[in-house]
Amino acid sequence: MTSSSRPLAARERVALADLLEELGPDAPTRCEGWTTAHLAAHLVTRDRRPDTTPGFALEATPVGRPFAAWSHHVEDRLRAGSRYADLVARVRSGPPRWLPAAWPPVSAVVDTAEYAIHHEDVRRARPGWTPRALPRGDQDRLWGNAVLFGRLAAGGVPGALVLRRTDVPGVERRYRSGTPETVVAGEPLELLLWASGRRDVARVTTG
C-alpha cells in the first residue's frame, strides 16, 4: 500500500510521530500546559489503555471528572516512567492488534480527528507555521469530523451556527435556528480546529 493510499488517520499518525521525534520532548504544543512529551504520553495512553477512554470522552462533563482524573493520572505515570523515544515509537506503531482501536474501520472513526488535530497542535506551536494544502479526499474526510465537532461547538454559540466550506461551493452545515447567526467559513481542517477549540490558530473567517 502506497503512503497516499493509506487511511488519513494512519498518515496523520506517522506524520505526527515524525514531528515528535524531530522536536524532542520539550517543544511546545497548542494544548495548554502540554509539551510534546505530554502529548506523546496522552496518545499512547489513549491507544493502549481502554480503561482511560471514559475519562477522555467525558472530560468536559461534570460526571466525567473522576474518570478524567484517572486518565490523566495514567498519562502522568507513563510520561514520568518512560523514555521519550519509546513513547514516540509507540505513537508510531499504534495500539496492539488485539485492541479494537487497531482495527482499520474503528481507527478511521476514532483516530482521524484525534491525529489531525494533534498534528496541528504541534505544527502550529512553531514559529512561521503555514497551513497545509490537503487533497480533496482528505478534506472531505475531515469535513465529516468537523460536522460532528460542530455539534459541540454550537452549544457555546448564541443563536445559530453555520459551518461553511470554502473549498467546495454550496456545502455548509447549520446548527439550530434563530438569531444571531454565526457563520464560520474555511477549509474542513480549519473548521475542525475551530470547532475543537483551536480558534486562535484556525484559519477561518467568521461573520
Rank of each mutant, 00 (worst) to 15 (best):
A116H: 09
S5W: 04
E187K: 05
V109D: 00
R132C: 04
R124Q: 11
W98H: 11
D86M: 04
S82G: 03
R151E: 12
H119K: 09
P28A: 01
P96I: 07
R126S: 12
T205M: 00
P169E: 14
T166M: 11
E12D: 13
L142R: 07
V44L: 09
V106S: 02
G186Q: 01
L148M: 13
R126H: 07
A37F: 00
T130F: 07
A80D: 12
S4Y: 10
L189A: 06
T130L: 15
G170H: 13
A10N: 07
T53E: 13
A102V: 04
H38P: 02
E21G: 12
A154C: 08
G33C: 05
V162T: 15
G128V: 13
D51I: 13
S107W: 00
T112I: 02
G150S: 09
P28R: 09
V109F: 00
V171F: 03
L152S: 14
L16Y: 05
R49W: 15
W194R: 03
F67V: 00
D86N: 05
R65V: 15
E32S: 08
E59R: 13
L16A: 09
A41L: 13
E120D: 15
A153T: 09
G64W: 10
R123A: 14
S71C: 03
S177H: 13
T2Q: 12
V204F: 12
L23P: 05
G33K: 11
S93P: 00
L161F: 03
